[in-house]
Simulated assay, not measured.
Amino acid sequence: MLPLAAVPGEARDPDGRYANSPLKQWFDSLRSGKGPCCSDADGSAVSDVDWESKGGRYRVRIDGEWYEVPEDAVITEPNRAGRTMVWPIRGYQGLSIRCFMPGSMT
């Protein structure tokens, strides 16, 4: 069981420390069918062992528990960062996935 690791500059940037990242504008523009990715949730890189694709659907392991990725949470544009990313949101009804961007499994 591997925890999610945050990737600097690839999530919300409340204090502006990643303002000069060449991917900042691209991350800020990412959207899924659920809305903007970086507006409400921090994105995290996902290790290859913590996500899978089967039958055209994705699953991701977050904090040791597997979650089905809703189809409308999948980002379909090319992944410029290369790494698999997930934007989970924790609320009163538990964890939901705002955005998921598959990477290339190596």
Results as ranks from 00 to 15, higher is better:
Asn20Tyr: 03
Cys38Met: 11
Thr84Trp: 05
Arg83Ile: 09
Pro70Thr: 01
Tyr92Trp: 11
Ser96Asn: 11
Ser47Cys: 06
Pro36Arg: 09
Trp51His: 07
Trp51Ala: 05
Ala45Ile: 01
Gly64Thr: 08
Ile89Thr: 13
Val86Ser: 02
Arg83Gln: 14
Gly43Cys: 07
Gly103Glu: 02
Tyr58Gly: 01
Ala45Gly: 15
Val46Met: 03
Gly33Lys: 01
Pro8Thr: 02
Met85Trp: 02
Arg57Gln: 15
Asp48His: 08
Val46Thr: 05
Asp40Met: 13
Cys99Tyr: 02
Arg90Asp: 14
Arg59Asn: 10
Val46Leu: 05
Ser32Met: 03
Glu10His: 09
Asp63Gln: 10
Arg90Ser: 13
Arg90His: 13
Trp51Met: 01
Glu77Cys: 02
Val49Ala: 15
Glu68Trp: 11
Gly35Tyr: 05
Cys38Tyr: 00
Arg61Asp: 03
Pro3Ala: 09
Gly33Glu: 00
Leu2His: 07
Ser104Val: 15
Leu23Pro: 03
Cys37Arg: 05
Arg12Gln: 09
Val49Tyr: 12
Val49Lys: 15
Val7Met: 12
Met105Pro: 12
Arg83Glu: 12
Ile89His: 11
Ser32Thr: 06
Ala81Asp: 09
Met101Arg: 04
Thr84Arg: 04
Pro70His: 03
Gly56Thr: 04
Lys34Ser: 10
Ala19Val: 09
Trp87Met: 02
Leu2Phe: 03
Gln25Cys: 00
Leu4Ser: 06
Leu30Arg: 04
Glu52Ser: 10
Arg57Asp: 13
Arg31Lys: 15
Val69Thr: 05
Asn20Gly: 09
Gly56Met: 05
Met101Glu: 12
Phe27Glu: 05
Ser29His: 01
Gln93Tyr: 14
Val49His: 13
Pro70Lys: 02
Arg61Gln: 10
Gly64Asp: 10
Asn20Trp: 08
Arg59Glu: 06
Asn79Val: 02
Leu95His: 08
Ala41Leu: 01
Phe27Met: 06
Val74Ala: 01
Lys54Ser: 15
Ala6Ser: 13
Met1Gln: 11
Trp66Ser: 04
Asn20His: 12
Gly94Ile: 13
Pro102Val: 12
Pro88Gly: 02
Val49Trp: 13
Ser21Gln: 08
Glu65Asp: 11
Gly43His: 04
Val46Cys: 00
Val46Trp: 06
Ile75Ser: 09
Tyr92Gly: 00
Met85Lys: 04
Leu95Glu: 10
Arg17Ala: 11
Gly55Ala: 09
Asp63Leu: 07
Ile62Cys: 00
Ala5Thr: 11
Asp50Ser: 12
Asp50Ile: 00
Arg98His: 11
Trp66Arg: 01
Ala5Asn: 08
Trp87Glu: 01
Ser21Glu: 12
Asp42Asn: 07
Ile62Glu: 00
Leu2Ile: 07
Asp15Ile: 15
Met105Asn: 15
Met105Ala: 15
Trp87Asp: 01
Trp87Thr: 03
Thr76Tyr: 07
Ala5His: 00
Val86Glu: 00
Cys37Thr: 06
Pro78Tyr: 08
Asn20Gln: 13
Ser21Pro: 04
Gly35Ala: 07
Tyr92Pro: 14
Met1Gly: 12
Glu77Arg: 09
Asp15Gly: 10
Gly64Gln: 07
Leu2Gly: 08
